[in-house]
Simulated scan of single mutants.
Amino acid sequence: MTHSAYVFDAYGTLFDVHSAVGRHAGAVGPQAATLSEIWRTKQLEYSWVRTLMGAYADFRQLTEQALDFALEKVPSVDRRLRNDLLAAYSSLDCYAEVPGVLRELKASGAKVAILSNGSPAMLQAAIVSASLDHVFDAVFSVDAIGRFKTDPATYRLVTSAWRLEPSAVSFQSSNRWDIAGATSFGFRTVWINRTGQPDEYPDLPPSLTLPNLDGLLAGA
């Protein structure tokens, strides 16, 4: 392995953010995919706006607010599903290749960590639910500094804790905006482009683009 540390975004990279609605798709109805997209989009928008305003609220609160907006936006969905959907978000499905890739990286001697907007409690619940609680050397939550990615201070959580230069860290995310921020900070970046999205930030390119984490082992 060529890097001292492999750090992963959580939501969308390790955990399928759409699995919460997917788990209740029958009850949600034909607008399930629409509801899930709105929920995710507003969740991220709230994180960026609050960081710009300097008015932090933890990711759990933003997740709840975003779901409330999505339910208002898609009135055909029964609002009584709110609690079930939030509970499902605490135990999101991880992608199939995730456990094997993480364990192989850890076995190689590299440090393995999460760096996420998620609150510590949210992340711990997702990790335990996916049986990944013995894989990570650290779980870095932006809650520690009260600012969301892509603020440079969020990426500095890793380098400060582990006393590493940014170039020693390989950072993996499915979110292109996150890859842009991490590239600007100086990480080696791997964009996990699971859904074949076009590039949004050509001036801040990833070091590598993959359709899932499996290719990370070959290119690590």
Rank of each mutant, 00 (worst) to 15 (best):
Q124W: 07
D58R: 04
Q124S: 15
L102H: 10
A138F: 04
G118V: 04
E104H: 05
A168N: 09
L92C: 08
A88M: 05
N175T: 05
R79W: 00
L123R: 00
I127W: 09
S90K: 11
I179M: 10
L123K: 03
Y95P: 10
T159K: 05
P120N: 07
G146Y: 01
P99I: 04
L71S: 07
A96Q: 15
F136I: 09
T159A: 09
Q61V: 15
S131K: 15
E165K: 12
E104D: 15
Y89H: 14
D68Y: 01
L92R: 03
A107M: 02
L81W: 00
L71I: 10
R147H: 10
S167N: 12
Q61L: 14
L157C: 12
N83I: 01
R80A: 15
W177H: 13
S174W: 02
P99Q: 04
A96R: 13
T154H: 01
Y89S: 15
Q172G: 07
A182C: 09
V142E: 02
A121W: 00
F148K: 05
A161Y: 00
R60N: 14
Q65N: 09
I179N: 03
R60Q: 14
S131Q: 14
V101I: 14
S167H: 12
S170F: 06
M53S: 11
R147V: 15
